[in-house]
Design a protein around this nucleic acid. Structure first.
Lengths: 338, 338
DNA sequence: CGAGGCAGTCGACGCGCTTCGTCGACGCGC
DNA sequence: GCGCGTCGACGAAGCGCGTCGACTGCCTCG
């Protein structure tokens, strides 16, 4: 591992000169620059990130904080992580993975104080998320995937759940459905103020009211068997229900299996709209689900880009994006049965 | 951000003394230790990782290299990543995510030369994987999830696909099936020497031969529609087939949908065994899949543990684990139809 | 009673890099 | 011909920490 001193010696210049050709902070004549670059090539030189970080302030590392307690399978999370790591690399950053429970905030402070990380991408942001004021107060640059209740001047990328919910209701209303359900995740998620679930539910209920449609809310843990159970619950408590909007793919798959078992046909007897499902997940059933699917990968990439630009000193007050997904009709919605 | 010098000043000792209580390298009297620890608490001191890394040689960072080209959804990968990051944190390490194509090896060298990373966990190892000799030659400590054709003295954790394949065949043979199929992933994966697929296929074919069972190999990309297609292919080219062993959940879901459509009942008309599917994935269908499911999370955790122990200087020649999964009968296998 | 040993502490150097202040050399205008 | 501004390059001072050598008492042993 060659050091900068080696390069300087080989090129016959001082260390600082080498440093300046690397950073471009000061003018260097073409001649010396050439010599230095050649020396770097010859020696197979790569700057030591730690030393750079210590001396300057740039470490080239950003962290992705993701919640570790989630149960059930979650492709969305995976898409976030994969896309974020790819984007980070494309922007010349390393992506550190920090699995934190929403509670151990102090841990975050600790790790940040280590000086390793320049900025942070927060995912699975709650509408009231104590991590946010914490990061602000700690003066750590960050962007969010998701958003708090009032993300005034914070940088974020999120799905427009308000729009999604009302679009979903529009869709089933136009098909003539008059009694619908909304399948959320666990009651705990609702209580915790999980943004996607809460926002979508509220939008669905509001839109339903507007259309004069009866709407029920159901909860289920994101697992296949839970979906099975919730199907029974629906038959029992809302027998007239003909359309279901859902934010819970694993349970929905279970629910569809239960429906098939019971002879309830989809979409003839029951229409289903998947809100915020990834494309892949929406196509993972039979029939494939009519869905509102934003590209979670794109969202994560954008959040990383925002962070990088913020680290470069750009004004980030305008780094706010709400993605309005398109409604894609697949096979799971149809005109309401008479 | 307090520094070590601050702590020393407050505690009324020299910097080196502070350093020694941190590392425990030299004896410190209880009195001074107490004072120093108190000062650290008071100042909210956290050692600067970069400086530690520069001065000593420990950065407390390990990297997880994962392939970025994979298509389709892959819960297994996700489980690896999540579990690895959690384990790393439990062991006091930070986990860096490196999405590398199998080809851009030189990138790895570059990033390693940056001095940031102490060691590497390699996932999705091919039977012939050029990254392995590269890492050996570069003298970078690493462990693998998966293994090369001859992982003689390398540290790895992998599923025992040989055992899995033959157990799967045992199972269907004992149910009286005499013509079976093996559903792999893409032909490209087979050609590339993708360990799980190749090893399982070979084991299945060998076991089938032993039992005098006819065995066909099918390939499909890991997507729902591809499974649909492969079902048709099976009907066409192997109409007598009554059991399918698979290593491709997305396609299997599609295949099952196609089967339902065609009136082929599972398991009465067609038995299915999922090899190496995660528990969650196996339960994500109707009927749930009889499967051989190792815990991918545990495997990743173990790979990280091995790496950490290797970094601590332990002899790693015995860090080799082959996980033999149990066969769990769910609803997708039955006695062969007559 | 003196030599040796050991627990406990300090100072200084170096890890590889950034950056600020400085200086030599050159070209220009008057 | 002299002074001055510019360009290009240099040296040195840190960044926060690990670690080696050395020093100081004090205890032990012969």
């Amino acid at each position: 591992m060659a050091t900068m001193a080696d390069v300087a010696r080989v090129a016959g210049v001082s260390r600082s000169t080498v440093s300046y050709v690397l950073s471009g902070t000061r003018p260097i004549s073409d001649g010396t620059r050439e010599r230095i670059l050649r020396a770097m090539k010859d020696l197979n030189y790569t700057p030591n990130v730690l030393a750079q970080g210590l001396a300057g302030r740039r470490t080239g590392i950003i962290a992705l904080i993701f919640p570790l307690s989630e149960i059930g399978f979650n492709l969305t999370e995976f898409e976030y992580i994969r896309a974020a790591s790819e984007q980070a690399r494309e922007d010349g950053y390393n992506l550190l993975l920090w699995p934190f429970g929403a509670d151990d905030i102090e841990e975050v402070r600790k790790v940040v104080n280590q000086g390793l990380v320049e900025g942070v991408v927060l995912m699975e942001v709650l509408t009231t998320d104590e991590r946010v004021p914490f990061l602000i107060e700690a003066d750590i640059p960050f962007t969010m995937i998701g958003r708090t209740a009032d993300p005034r001047d914070l940088a974020y990328v999120d799905t427009d759940f308000e729009a999604s919910g009302s679009m979903a209701v529009d869709h089933v209303a136009s098909l003539g459905h008059t009694e619908i359900g909304f399948l959320a995740r666990t009651q705990a998620d609702l209580d915790a103020g999980h943004g996607p679930v809460v926002r979508t539910r509220d939008a669905v209920l509001a839109a339903a009211k507007k259309f004069g449609i009866r709407a029920h809310v159901f909860t289920a843990s994101p697992t296949f068997p839970a979906g099975w159970d919730v199907f029974e619950e629906i038959r029992r408590t809302a027998p007239g229900l003909t359309a279901l909007l859902e934010l819970n793919e694993p349970a929905t798959l279970g629910l569809m299996a239960a429906a098939a078992e019971r002879g309830v046909r989809i979409p003839q007897d029951l229409s289903i709209v998947a809100v915020n499902a990834s494309e892949g997940a929406a196509q993972m059933s039979k029939p494939a689900l009519t869905s509102l699917s934003p590209s979670h990968g794109d969202m994560a990439r954008l959040a990383v880009k925002y962070l990088v630009r913020r680290l470069r000193g750009e004004d980030y007050s305008a780094f706010q994006t709400l993605v309005v997904p398109e409604l894609i009709e697949r096979g799971s919605t149809a005109v309401a049965p008479s």
